[in-house]
Design a protein around this nucleic acid. Structure first.
Lengths: 202, 202
DNA sequence: GGAGTTGTTGGACGGTTGCGCAATAGGGTC
DNA sequence: GACCCTATTGCGCAACCGTCCAACAACTCC
C-alpha cells in the first residue's frame, strides 16, 4: 500500500475501525477486519496502536463524538429554543441506521468492565444531556417551556426515555418501530415541558 | 465426575453458567469456563445443550424470569390498580444489586448477534411490558388512571424510561443515583397516567 | 451376572484471535 | 546517485474458541 505520513495513517486506521465498529459492534472488531477494510496488512495496525483495546477506545470516542457534534451543529441552527428542541429530535443520531445505537449498547454493557470505555461513554452521555439541558434552560428562561424541577433533570428524563425506547428498536427488532420511539419521546417531551400537544410531534 | 440425573445435571450446568455470566458478562461466557466451574469436562456441556447460544439464552432466561416472577407475585398482592402500580415500582428488580441490570445490558447488546438470546430477551421484555400494561388497563377501566392512547403504549413508555434511567446508574456509576431513577420514573408515571403528584412518589 | 443404556471423558479438528518480528520497499536527504 | 530511516509487509506463534466424536464407566433392567 502507498506509504502515508504517520498522522494520516493513524487517522485512516481510526476511520477504518469506525466503519467495522459500526457494522459489526464493539465486540466483533478485529485487527484483521480493520486491516482488510484499509487494504493493508494486519501488522501495520500494531505499528500504530499498541493494543486492540486502545484502538477500540479511540474509535468509539471518535464515532460517538462525531454523532454528538452533528446534533450540536444541527441544534445550533435553530432560531428559538422550541425550534432547537425540534431539531434535536430530528437529528438524534444514536438510533439512525441502527448501527449507531448498537455501538452505544455495546459501550453501556462493557462500561462496567472496561474503565477507559466507561470514562468515554459517561463523558459523552453527559454531553448529550448537557446539550439538551441547555436548550430546555433557554426555553424555560424564555417562558416557552416549563420545567417541574430543573432543566438538567428534565433533560435526563427525555434523553433516557429516548434511549430506552431506541434500545428496544435496535435490540428486539419490530417489537417497537423507530417511528413509534420517535413519536412517543416527542410527545413525552411535550408533556414534560408543558408544550401544547403537536408542537414537537407535528 | 459423579454421575447425575439428567434433570439435576442440566440444572447444575445452568447454575454454573449463571455464575460465570454474572462474573464476566454474557459475551465472555465460554464452554470451558462453565465446565471448569463445575469441575467437569467440556464435552459434557454440549451433551446437554446443543450450542453455546442456547445455553446462554437458557441461563439468561432463568435469572431474568426469576426477577419477573418476583415482581409479578408482589404486584398480585395489591388490592387496587393504584396499589399494584406502586408495588411494581417497589419491587422492580432489574436494577437491584446492579448485577441484575448489568445482565440486561449484556443481553440487549448481544441480542443482535445471538438469535436465541434475542428471542429470550425480547419475550421477557414483552412480559414486563404486558404486566405493566395489565395494571394500567385495570386502572383505566376503574377510572383511577387515564391513558392518552393505549395501556400498552403507556406501559412501553414507563418501562423504557425506567430502563433508560437505570442504564445510566449501572453503566456510569454516580452520574445518576438509583434513588433519582426511581423517583423520576414514578413521577413520570404519575404524569403519564393522570395521577395527582405524590400518589406513587409519596 | 450379563446386556443394554447413557452420563461422562478427553482430546482432535478447523477456525479464530491478538500480537511479534524479520524482511522489504518507498521516500526524503545529502 | 548512495544512504538512511521507517512505513509496510507477510507470515509465524501461542492461545483461545465452539463443535464433534470415539472410548470409557456407571447405572438399570432382566
Amino acid at each position: 500500500m502507498a506509504r502515508m505520513s504517520p498522522a494520516d495513517r493513524r487517522e485512516a486506521i481510526v476511520a477504518a475501525t469506525l466503519s467495522v465498529l459500526e457494522r459489526r459492534g464493539i465486540a466483533a472488531v478485529t485487527v484483521r477486519d480493520v486491516a482488510a477494510e484499509l487494504g493493508v496488512s494486519s501488522g501495520l495496525i500494531h505499528h500504530y496502536y499498541a493494543s486492540m483495546d486502545e484502538l477500540v477506545a479511540v474509535a468509539f470516542e471518535r464515532v460517538a463524538r462525531a454523532d454528538l457534534a452533528e446534533t450540536v451543529a444541527a441544534v445550533a441552527a435553530g432560531s428559538s429554543p422550541l425550534e432547537r428542541l425540534r431539531l434535536f429530535f430530528d437529528t438524534y443520531a444514536r438510533s439512525d441506521g441502527d448501527e449507531g445505537m448498537q455501538v452505544w449498547l455495546d459501550a453501556w454493557a462493557e462500561a462496567a468492565r472496561r474503565p477507559a470505555l466507561q470514562r468515554s461513554s459517561r463523558r459523552l452521555n453527559e454531553e448529550w444531556q448537557a446539550l439538551l439541558a441547555s436548550v430546555i434552560a433557554e426555553g424555560s428562561a424564555a417562558g416557552t417551556m416549563t420545567v417541574a424541577d430543573s432543566p438538567g433533570a428534565a433533560a435526563w428524563r427525555v434523553l433516557s426515555l429516548l434511549d430506552g425506547l431506541s434500545l428496544q428498536v435496535v435490540a428486539h427488532g419490530d417489537v417497537l418501530t423507530a417511528e413509534q420511539a420517535d413519536l412517543w419521546s416527542r410527545q413525552a417531551a411535550e408533556r414534560e415541558l408543558g408544550l401544547t400537544p403537536g408542537t414537537l410531534s407535528r
